[in-house]
C-alpha cells in the first residue's frame, strides 16, 4: 500500500463553531479534492469537526528552530503588551 505516486497534505480541523482550525496530522492523496475526502474519513470518524482544511505540505513555510532566538526572544522584553503590566487602583474593581 505504498503511496509513492501521491502527494502529502497537512490536515486542519475546526472542532466546533467558534474554535480555530487545529492541525491534526497529515495524509497522502492525489489532489486537494481527494485530500479533503480522505481527511473526512481519516480524521473525523467520530464527528470531531465541522470544517476541514487541507494544505499541501510543501506549501507550508515554517520558522526554523535555529531562528527561535531572533524570532521570539525580542517579544520577551515587551511586558507592556500584556494587560497585567498595568495595575489598577484598588478602587476600580472591574475593567
Amino acid at each position: 500500500m505504498t503511496t509513492e505516486k501521491l502527494e502529502l497534505f497537512e490536515v486542519f480541523v475546526r472542532p466546533k463553531r467558534g474554535l480555530d482550525h487545529k492541525h491534526v496530522g497529515s495524509l497522502h492523496a492525489q489532489g486537494r479534492e481527494q485530500a479533503l475526502e480522505y481527511a473526512r474519513d481519516v480524521y473525523t470518524r467520530r464527528t470531531e469537526g465541522i470544517s476541514i482544511w487541507v494544505v499541501k505540505s510543501q506549501d507550508i513555510s515554517a520558522s526554523q528552530e535555529d531562528d527561535n532566538e531572533s524570532f521570539f526572544d525580542p517579544s520577551d522584553d515587551k511586558p507592556y503588551r500584556h494587560a497585567t503590566y498595568y495595575p489598577l487602583p484598588k478602587e476600580i474593581t472591574t475593567m
Binding site: 505504498t2 503511496t3 509513492e4 496530522g25 497529515s26 497522502h28
Partner: peptide, 27 residues
C-alpha cells in the same frame, strides 16, 4: 479494524516527520 488503519496512518505520518517516506517504510 478501520480505526486500526487510521492509527497506522497517524503513525506513518508522525514517522514521516523524521525524514523517511511512507513508501520507504512499507518497503
Amino acid at each position: 479494524v478501520q480505526d486500526e488503519a487510521g492509527h497506522g496512518l497517524y503513525l506513518y505520518s508522525a514517522t514521516e516527520t523524521l525524514g523517511i517516506s511512507r513508501a520507504q517504510m512499507i518497503e
